[in-house]
Structure formats: C-alpha cells, structure tokens
Design a protein around this nucleic acid. Structure first.
Length: 351
DNA sequence: AATTCGGGGTG
DNA sequence: CACCCAGAATT
C-alpha cells in the first residue's frame, strides 16, 4: 500500500536512534513500552537506561522489592505502571518460566498491558500483524482521512483502530507500526506540522481542506480540582516521619510526610490547634512554622495541589522516626522530592 | 462511557 | 493558560 510505502520510506531516513530499537528481546521492548505510556521519549529515555542497567532481565526485576522499583520510577508519574510492571515481571518469571506470551491475546492478559502495548510488543517482537493505536497514530489518521470523530471516546477508538488495522502492511507490521508512530511524533506534529515537506501532501484531507489545526478532535476534560495539602515535616534530633500512602488513590505505596488535607488554606494557628488536640503530640512540640511563604502549586492533569510544608520541631516523635540520612532512599512523589532538594534539616536544627 | 491515575514540555 | 505525550485500569 502506498501509505505504508511513504511512511516506511520516510522512517528509514528520519527515524531516531533509540536503544529499544536495537533489540527484539520482549523484556526490553515491554519495559520501553510501559515507560513510554503517556510519556515523551525525552522524559522516558533516562529511566529506561537506568532500569536496564539495574535489571538486565525479567528475573532481576522480579527479584527486586516493590520499594526499589518505585524508587527507580520516582518522578515518572502514573505509578500504577511501576507496580504493574513489577507484578508482571514476577508473573512472567515465576509462572511463565521467564517467557513472555507471543501473541496479542496472551500479552493482553498481563497487568499493565492494554490494546496499544499488546499490539506494539506482538508486532515488534513476534511479527504479529496487529496495528498500534497511540496518540501519534490518532493524529496522523484523523488528518490524513479527515475524520472528526473524537479520539477520546469508545466510538473513536473503534473507528481509528479499524482504520489503523486496515492500512497495516501485514508483510512488515513492525516497520509499519514504528514508522506511523515516528511520523506522528516528528513530522505530523500536534502544532506546526511539517506539511510543506510532507510525503502525503497530495492526498491528505486535512491539508487539502486547511484543517490540520482542527484535527484530531478531542473532547475536553473537566477542569482540575483544587486541593489544599499540608505536609507536617517533623524534626526531632536527626529524625522525621514518613508515611506510606495506602489505599487506592494517587501516589499509592509512595512515601510522604504526614498529610493534612483541608478544604481551604490553613494558618499557623490552625495547625497549632491540630497539634494541641493530638494526644500523641501534646506538650512535645516546641515550634511550628511555615517553610514556604507562597503555596507550592503542584499541577496534575486532574488536580491542582496547593501545598504548604509545615516545619514541626518536637522533643519526641509520636511514632517511629526515619533518620534524615535515609529519607532519600524512599520513593516519594516529586512534590516531596523537590522539597527535599531545597530543605536542609541541619540548618534548621542549629537555630 | 467516564473518570482516575503524573509529570514534563510546548506555544 | 490550554494542550500534548509510544494508555491502562477502574467505576
């Protein structure tokens, strides 16, 4: 098909040199695909290198602790990817004798592998003719064929998945899949696509109709919700308190300072009241002050976190503490990690 | 069918 | 500021 020919020809000349393209080891391809979910290559690449260095094969990853995997994942976000990565490594190592499934259907049963990732691994490693559908493919197809069905709907998925599969070249599904994604990433870009040098200029519907900036169509999401986070940074001798986040929500299994979430911004007196009311803390806290004058606004895709770090000096910690020298060993949200980089507990203790 | 999961980068 | 990124799991 002429589309594939144009794509693969362009790809041969313009593709980036990326480490996971030098191998068909399912472990490495799988790792790269998980890291790159909703993540730009520039951001994911150093994580991939560190993971391969520390865990050269699936057994190394399987034998690690979840804490270590999360620590290595710190800063990359969507931490369920790291937890599922670890769970799947253990499953493949111990239940599948170290062998990844070789079909889309088999891969789909693994935690953290959905339609896109299954198609990617199956086509790249095992030559299965299954079309990948990611943000790049949505963009190219919607423009080339002039389709305005919203891409973030179940109908959009059906329409574009069928189209992607339809134009897939079964003779070399790996190259076709790689090429269409790379083309979307480098050439048919979200803004300012390189239409003037595009091999599809004569046949692209969006270009002919001047609609490249209107495609793909995406339904707008809700506005981020505001939340107010108050972290209590305890200081007692050389120790502080870290808690592991439990349950379902954001940052599950990562560590943080004790958190007080409120519906509005707190004042120091209100924090003082909270501490005074706590039986565990009564009469042990000598001083409380706000570390950051202005709220640190941490922006997630669905939430804006207005954050205050409260320094709480105490004679005695209410629970078992963590030595400050060990704090950096824990996997923490980058919001906490950034604070730790600027905070010097020894300076504070001197005063 | 919608929502919930992070964080960094762009214009 | 809005939008995007080699999406998946849950509700």
């Amino acid at each position: 098909m002429t589309i594939t020919k144009n794509l693969t020809s362009w790809y041969s000349n313009s593709k980036r040199d990326l480490p996971w393209r030098k191998t068909k080891d399912p472990y490495r391809v799988w790792l790269s695909e998980i890291i790159l979910q909703q993540t730009q290559i520039k951001q994911g690449l150093p994580y991939y290198e560190r993971f391969i260095l520390r865990f050269p094969n699936v057994y190394d990853l399987a034998n690690a602790s979840e804490e270590e995997v999360l620590k290595l994942w710190q800063g990359l976000g969507y931490y369920s990817r790291a937890r599922n990565l670890h769970a799947t490594a253990k499953y493949v190592a111990y239940e599948l004798n170290g062998q990844f499934p070789e079909t889309c259907g088999g891969l789909l049963k693994l935690k953290g592998i959905g339609d896109y990732t299954a198609s990617a691994i199956a086509s790249i490693c095992f030559g299965e003719p299954s079309a990948v559908l990611d943000g790049n493919v949505y963009r190219f197809l919607s423009r080339y064929f002039g389709i305005d069905t919203p891409i973030n709907t179940s109908q959009g998925f059906k329409v574009f998945k069928a189209l992607a599969q339809d134009i897939l070249d079964d003779r070399d599904p790996e190259k076709h899949n790689q090429a269409i994604m790379e083309f979307g990433a480098l050439h048919c870009t979200p803004t300012n696509p390189s239409c003037d040098t595009c091999p599809f200029q004569n046949t692209c519907v969006a270009f002919a109709e001047g609609k490249t900036s209107e495609l793909p169509v995406k339904l707008k999401g809700k506005k981020p919700e505001k939340k107010y986070f108050n972290f209590l940074v305890f200081l007692s001798d050389n120790e502080t308190i870290l808690e592991k986040r439990k349950g379902k929500g954001i940052w599950k299994n990562l560590f943080q300072f004790p958190l007080v979430e409120t519906s509005k911004s707190l004042k120091v007196q209100e924090v003082q009241v909270l501490v005074d009311q706590s039986e565990l803390l009564s009469n042990t806290v000598s001083e409380i002050y706000l570390y950051n004058e202005d709220d640190i606004v941490h922006k997630l895709s669905h939430r804006h976190l207005y954050t205050k770090f409260w320094i709480v000096l105490t004679d005695k910690l209410p629970v078992e503490g963590v030595n400050w020298d060990l704090v950096k060993k824990y996997a923490v949200p980058i919001l906490i990690g950034n604070f730790l980089e600027t905070f010097n507990f020894q300076e504070v203790l001197k005063e």
